[in-house]
Design a protein around this nucleic acid. Structure first.
Lengths: 220, 220
DNA sequence: TCAAAAGTGTTCGTTATACACCCATGT
DNA sequence: ACATGGGTGTATAACGAACACTTTTGA
C-alpha cells in the first residue's frame, strides 16, 4: 500500500536516550542496526511515529518494541532535522530523555531481532546518524535535571538505591548522574534539605569498616 | 506532481512565536488564516518545512514570507504533535521563539495575502489549532530567558530602547518582558551588575520633571 | 594499631528580596 | 509651593562552594 501526498513529507521519528547506572557508571541503552543505513552501527533506540499516536506515545512504543523498556516517563529534548542526517530520506526526529534502573529491566530481543545493549557513556561506540550530537545534548539535560530541584527525573535517581541505603551510596548515585564529584558534607546537607529522608536507626553490618546509618526516602 | 511513500508520513511545520513590545505592552505577531481550516482565525506564523532545509531555516523562511520579519535568531521551543491538532492531516510542528523590535519592522503583506498583525498578549483572539498552548509555553520561555542571565535573547531586550536610554525606560522594558513589576533599586543593581552600562554624562531635557541620566550598553 | 570508611560545622561569596526617603525640575 | 518622576543604601535570607578533623569498626 502506498501513501501519496501533493507535497513531499519528511518522515518523523522519535529517538529515546535511556540512561541508567550500572556498576556505578552512567550507561546508555543503544541498539545495533541490522539494516542499512549504518548497518552494524549502534544507535539510540527509536522509530517512526504512527499517524494516530502522539509523539511521546510513539516514543514509548518504539522504546518498548526495540528494547523491552516500558513505563518510564519521557521528557522531550527537542527536534533534530538537519537535511541529510538520514541518507535515505528526509527524517526529522524528536528526541526524549529518561532515566531508568537497568537492573530490573529485562532487555527483550527487539522485535526486528536487533541487539539492545547498555554502553558505558565513557566507552561509546561510533553512533549512527547524528546520534552523537543528540546524546551529548541529552547527557547535559540529564545532569541539569538531577542537579538542582526536586523533579520527577530527580526522583528516579533513588531507583538506583536499595530501599535502605547509606548516604555514601546515595552520593555515589548523584555523582554518577551529575558527572562530577561532590563534597561529602555539602551533599549531606543538600539531600537532607531537599528530600524527606527517614533515619531507620539501623546500621549496615558485615562491612569491613565502620557501619553506616541506613535511610529511606519518603516522596512528597 | 505527487509524492508517494510506502508508509504514511506526517507533514512537518515550523511555527514561530515572535514577541515584541509596542507602547509598553508585550505583543505577539499573528497572521490571519484565509483558508480552511480555521479560516478567519488568527494563528502563529509558520508553515511547511522544505525537504532540503534545516528546521530552523525553514522557520526563518516562513516567518519572512508570511510577515516580512527577517534576520532574527530563533530559539527552539519543542515539537508539538497531538494527533488531530490539524484537521486536514497529521501535522507535527516545531515551535520557535524570538524577540524583535517591532517599530523597525515593516510587516509586508504576506505572500498569500493574509494579514499579519501585532496583538497585545492580554487581548488575544481565539487562535487556530493548538496555538494557544504553544503560545503559552513560548510566553513562559521568554520570561525565563530574559529573567536571569545574559543570553542572546536577553540582549535583544535592549532593542526596545533608544541608543541613549534612562534606567526607568530600561526597567519598563524588562518589566514588560518578565510580566511582573520590579523594584527600582533592585533593578538598578541588577542591570549594573549584569550589563556593561556606559554613563553618558548627559541628561534628558524637555521633560516635565527632573532630568534623568542617560546610558548606553556595550555588549561583551 | 592500623587501614578504611563514616560522620560532622563553619565560613564566605553571591544573589534575591524587602523596604523609605531625599532630589531636581517644570509649572 | 507642589507635583512628578529621578535617584539612592542597607539588611536579611537562601544557596552553593570550600575546607579538615574525629569516630568507629574489622582485620
Amino acid at each position: 500500500m502506498a501513501y501519496t501526498y501533493e507535497y513531499p513529507h519528511p518522515a518523523v521519528t522519535a529517538d529515546i536516550c535511556i540512561f541508567s547506572i550500572r556498576e556505578g557508571r552512567l550507561h546508555v541503552l543503544l541498539i545495533e542496526r541490522l539494516a542499512d543505513p549504518f548497518q552494524g552501527s549502534w544507535a539510540i533506540p527509536g522509530g517512526f511515529i504512527k499517524m494516530d499516536e502522539d509523539i511521546v506515545v510513539g516514543a514509548a512504543r518504539e522504546l518498548e518494541e526495540e528494547t523491552g523498556v516500558a513505563g518510564v516517563p519521557l521528557e522531550q529534548l527537542g527536534a533534530y532535522g538537519m537535511p541529510g542526517r538520514d541518507p535515505r530520506e528526509r527524517v526529522i526526529t524528536v528526541a526524549f530523555v529518561a532515566l531508568v534502573p537497568s537492573d530490573q529491566m529485562v532487555l527483550t530481543a527487539a522485535t526486528d531481532a536487533s541487539d539492545a545493549r547498555w554502553f558505558d557513556m565513557d566507552e561509546l561506540p561510533v553512533l549512527a546518524f547524528d546520534h552523537d550530537v543528540i546524546l551529548a545534548d541529552a547527557r547535559a539535560k540529564l545532569a541539569d535535571k538531577v542537579t538542582n530541584r526536586v523533579t520527577e527525573t530527580a526522583k528516579s535517581a533513588f531507583q538506583f538505591l536499595p530501599k535502605k541505603f547509606t548516604l555514601a551510596q546515595a552520593q555515589a548515585v548523584f555523582e554518577t548522574l551529575r558527572g562530577e564529584e561532590l563534597d561529602k558534607r555539602n551533599f549531606r546537607k543538600w539531600i537532607a534539605a531537599n528530600w524527606d529522608l527517614v533515619d531507620l536507626k539501623e546500621k549496615t553490618s558485615g562491612g569491613r569498616h565502620r557501619p553506616a546509618a541506613l535511610y529511606s526516602v519518603d516522596f512528597v
